[in-house]
Design a binder for these strands. Structure first.
Length: 103
DNA sequence: CAGTTGACGGCCC
DNA sequence: GGGGCCGCCAACT
């Protein structure tokens, strides 16, 4: 299993109506030092239809302006469609962050 | 082959 | 509290 494969697996496991941080995904993928790699993995994003990259946000709950789909506003709309609320352009992490028991 | 960059995170000032 | 710097890994030039 490649590094990217793991990352994609984790991203696809993110429950609907929940968001995860890059660090969180990296940690679940096996290494907490892959935050940047996670970003790159989602950047190449081979399957934007099956990989909900919009559920991955920065540690602050902020989304990237360089979002591949057309901008942070698109990502925000997708998240809102999943029932996730925003507070001042930031996802309410305390409420919607994916609480991973341990994986 | 070596240097630089990147959808980040954490610590220091 | 806000801003800046360094570190991590993999891909790109």
């Amino acid at each position: 299993m490649n590094t990217y494969e793991k990352i994609y697996e984790v991203v696809k496991r993110i429950p609907k109506g929940t968001v995860a941080t890059y660090g969180q995904v990296a940690r679940l993928a096996g290494n907490s030092h892959w935050a940047r790699v996670v970003g790159y993995a989602l950047h190449v994003n081979p399957d934007n239809g099956e990989i909900p990259c919009y559920r991955v946000v920065s540690k602050d709950g902020r989304v990237s302006e360089a979002f591949a789909f057309g901008g942070a506003n698109i990502q925000r709309r997708l998240l809102e469609a999943d029932g996730i609320e925003f507070r001042d352009d930031c996802v309410i992490m305390e409420k919607y962050q994916w609480e991973t028991p341990f994986y």
